[in-house]
């Protein structure tokens, strides 16, 4: 049996126990919202709003679209682009993350993906190829004078490390504006709940096994807040027994060594959980030690 290809018209609404479950496909990933209600029409309205917000953010910040804000920034290059308030706040957030992470969280590191193709193969790029790209990486090289961003020639930004998590937080806010019901918004494993289910019961979330698709590595209870996972279930290179994760160190241009295969973070917002997960992966071998020292609720799979 083969699953039907997902299309824009893929939105489905189903009854799951005490919830209505609306699923659709956006941002290259399965998305869902679960609403604890018996009102199907209300659940569908919420589902439509959540999907609309996901598509709005995908269109606005996708680096694959020349007409997105990111596409236009990258195309404008040194000519610069004055951005709107929302984009400005995302860029400002990215700058602060760069500072807080000693330069490890860098939205300009996307150009390295011209050399790295994490397809599970053993094809590593040549060392010279990476040295050629490194001058095009580094947030301090861009000119960010809010609301205007100018990129040196050849450089690009990529908000992929923020946009999906931001979309979860945004979509949940939109949904709660329609009805303040217990709900869970999940875009490809990055998720946030509105609060506990009725009766104070927590939401339970399965962490997918990195070994086999569909397998479950554990269950988490979530009463409030968000979860985000950074991992390389399918995105990695394997050569001579060394596994190269898709998390690239922007300073060396090479994948981070000895990173956990997956890090799941619990935090108040999905954006915070996502940044923290990325940062933990960038710590490589010391990911668990970092999370423990910072007192962060986290689940690592090695």
């Amino acid at each position: 049996m083969q699953a039907a290809p997902e299309t824009e018209a893929s939105r489905r609404i189903t009854r799951l126990g005490p919830d209505y479950h609306v699923s659709f496909h956006a941002m290259a990933t399965p998305c869902e919202v679960r609403v604890e209600t018996s009102d199907a029409a209300l659940a569908e309205r919420i589902g439509i709003a959540v999907e609309a917000e996901a598509r709005r953010i995908e269109l606005k910040f996708s680096r694959y679209r020349v007409d997105s804000v990111v596409g236009r920034i990258n195309a404008a290059g040194h000519l610069g682009l004055v951005v709107d308030e929302e984009t400005s706040s995302l860029l400002e957030c990215a700058r602060q993350c760069f500072d807080a992470s000693d330069g490890m969280f860098d939205i300009t590191s996307g150009v390295l993906r011209r050399a790295w193709h994490f397809d599970g193969s053993d094809r590593l790029p040549g060392a010279q190829r990476i040295l050629d790209l490194l001058p095009l990486v580094g947030w301090p090289k861009v000119s960010w004078k809010p609301p205007e961003l100018k990129l040196p020639p050849g450089m690009e930004i990529d908000l992929g490390g923020l946009a999906k998590e931001y979309a979860v937080d945004r979509a949940l806010a939109e949904a709660l504006a329609i009805a303040p019901l217990p709900m869970l918004v999940n875009f490809g494993g990055d998720l946030r709940v509105s609060g506990p289910r009725s009766g104070g019961i927590p939401w339970n979330v399965a962490i997918e096994s990195v070994e086999k698709s569909g397998g479950m590595a554990g269950m988490l209870e979530l009463r409030e807040g968000a979860l985000a996972t950074s991992g390389d279930a399918r995105r990695f290179l394997l050569r001579d027994g060394v596994r190269y994760s898709h998390i690239l160190n922007p300073r060396t241009g090479w994948p981070v060594k000895d990173a956990p295969r997956s890090v799941t973070i619990a935090a108040y917002s999905c954006v915070e959980a996502g940044i923290t997960a990325t940062l933990a992966m960038l710590k490589g071998r010391r990911a668990e030690a970092f999370l423990k020292r910072e007192g962060i609720r986290a689940w690592c799979i090695r």
Partner: peptide, 10 residues
């Protein structure tokens, strides 16, 4: 399905 295992996790 995995996401329906909330009760089983108790």
């Amino acid at each position: 399905k995995p996401w329906e295992k909330d009760l089983m996790a108790r």
